[in-house]
């Protein structure tokens, strides 16, 4: 039947329930298992093939050699990264992994270059 205020019963019911708003900094929702957050780099596994650099759509990762002994460091530009985790898929040795960390904002730009050794 047509009458104005069709949604009224639902509205009154909703008012009785607690709000669905998540009060973010105080209250957090569960982060799903496969969440694509900040990338973690495992220097022990890296062979320096630079496949991640080739496939990164945002040029957000840089692998550099440090020292003679096939040791590498990775720089992640967190401001460039689009968190697609393609580097994780591209890495042949599984040296890269997604972490659930997502609160990466910073006041200083240079702090957004995350160097992992």
């Amino acid at each position: 039947m047509k009458y104005p205020g069709k949604i009224l019963p639902e509205v009154l019911k909703t008012a009785m329930k607690p709000p669905v708003t998540v009060r973010y900094p105080y209250e957090r929702t569960e982060i799903p298992e496969g969440f694509r957050g900040k990338i973690h780099f495992d220097a022990k596994l890296c062979i320096g093939c630079k496949m991640c650099m080739r496939d990164c759509p945002a040029k957000a990762v840089e692998i550099e050699k440090i020292g003679e002994d096939k040791v590498f460091k990775a720089t992640f530009y967190l401001d460039h990264c689009i968190y697609c985790a393609q580097c994780v898929d591209s890495c042949p040795k599984k040296a890269l992994a997604s972490t659930p960390e997502f609160e990466l904002a910073h006041y200083q730009r240079d702090k957004l270059a995350d160097i992992q050794k």
């Binding site: 639902e10 509205v11 669905v20 496969g34 969440f35 694509r36 697609c84 985790a85």
Partner: peptide, 28 residues
């Protein structure tokens, strides 16, 4: 009110997308 209700329910879909793909939008 319809706006708020529809978007509230849409959250469930976004959550399931995040569960499957790891992100709410741009599922990759």
């Amino acid at each position: 009110t319809l706006f708020m209700y529809a978007w509230r329910d849409r959250e469930a879909v976004l959550d399931i997308l995040a569960l499957i793909s790891g992100n709410r939008v741009n599922y990759g």
